[in-house]
Design a protein around this nucleic acid. Structure first.
Lengths: 237, 237
DNA sequence: GTCAAACTTCTTGTATACAGGATTTGACGA
DNA sequence: TCGTCAAATCCTGTATACAAGAAGTTTGAC
């Protein structure tokens, strides 16, 4: 009851002169915002603890606060920003402890991807994985860690797909994204790129051999090492 | 069947009435909304595929569309709601295929909880787990599945905590919540409650014995069975 | 000189207004 | 009767307005 009247009056109750023209085109304004902000958090352009002022972001992206808020809420759901009631949003601060925990879960999920991939992947899919692995070759000498990082990420994403479990793939990709800045950092550790490449080789072999146990074990170790290396890195600072 | 068990309040919130300016006590208006809607989705009061009209919800909760939208965005991030651009929100439809995939991931995560619990839990924590298990005794005869469901959920939640991995705990609790309606359904399968209880016994034993491998294996099976029973249930309809 | 209370300013949370895509309705023709 | 197209309506996405909490600043007392 007491229906809120939308007042569909067609007569001019507003002066259109002051109305800014809506920039239509994209279905959703908050989508590109979300991606841009996420990218900046992930690449550390926005450092952990940095305040995310809604008005400021709105001006920067030339939109109103509404889509900004929606993007921030989504980022908070993803764990990338922390929303403090009435006190604004900040880039989430992840403690080393939390990070270790996340790598631990990641190791389990990737191991399971490997197990399923060994069980279910087709010959063609395996060739795809092998190709992704071989694409890493030229950048595995440690001269171009950024390029290796990118190719490495692709390799893992293909692996996820080979699990033939879309939900698992989604979850693990999400976590991969959240851990991205730390993984990237960790790749700069001496010799890590070379070892990583070798580990991939063993993983591919196990999957192509259909050896579930070995595939899972190699992957678990592969990810756990990243967590450990990262913690070494932290300790050395 | 399908009796909604406890239904904790969840409907005494929209008493604001009167065109009050703003007087709010709660820090955030969207928080209780979120929880209420989530509860209704989980308990199937809002069936999969049901449209979630923003204006309608706004009227029902006596708030504006803004907090409703924010709640919907969060629900979409959690996977409970599907947001179709320009076409409104609907309760997410989960296919049997997806469900199987989710149970599969759940099995892995719980297995890992069990492994970590066996490795890290203290004697006192183990007593807590045992107590939670024994609390299930009286309702394990199958006469009161709803009560067993509740106690069973508590048992698992304690287990998650014993992993001493807060991130894992959070992730697995989240998934537990998402799978809740299906787990509940599945408990009505003949004999399932009794078997579930026995499986818990084996899990507790393995954890108290510090047997990581066995704890993980029992848990994996325990959850996988649920997925399989559910798929049997689907097939029989 | 330091601390605290009051005031000011800033920023968030919610409500409302409005534009344009999506859906429905209705008329017309095959 | 059914299908198609156009107009009307509904509803979402975004902008803007406004109230109240939080932070910052000034002033007053001890």
């Amino acid at each position: 009851m007491t229906t809120i009247k939308p007042t569909p009056v067609s007569s001019a109750t507003h002066d259109k002169a002051t109305r800014a023209p809506l920039a239509q085109g994209a279905v959703r304004l908050s989508q590109p915002l979300l991606e841009t902000i996420e990218e900046e958090i992930v690449t550390r352009q926005l450092a952990p603890g940095a305040r995310l002022d809604e008005t400021e972001l709105a001006q920067r992206f030339a939109v109103s606060r509404t889509p900004i808020r929606e993007a921030l809420i989504q980022l908070a759901s993803a764990g990338l920003v922390e929303l403090r009631p009435r006190r604004g949003a900040i880039v989430a601060q992840v403690s080393p402890q939390q990070l270790m925990e996340m790598f631990d879960v990641m190791a389990e999920l990737e191991a399971h991807c490997g197990r399923l991939a060994a069980r279910r992947s087709t010959a063609e899919e395996q060739r795809e994985l092998l190709a992704a692995h071989e694409a890493c070759t030229e950048s595995s000498n440690g001269l171009d860690p950024d390029r290796y990082f990118y190719l490495n990420e692709r390799f893992h994403q293909i692996l996820y797909r080979l699990s033939h479990n879309a939900f698992l793939e989604e979850q693990v990709r999400h976590l991969q994204r959240r851990l991205r800045p730390y993984r990237r950092l960790q790749l700069r550790v001496r010799q890590r790129v070379g070892h990583s490449f070798e580990e991939h080789r063993a993983i591919v072999d196990a999957i192509m051999a259909g050896n579930e146990v070995l595939a899972a074990e190699h992957l678990r170790t592969h990810i756990q090492i990243q967590g450990e290396r990262f913690s070494d890195l932290m300790a050395s600072l």
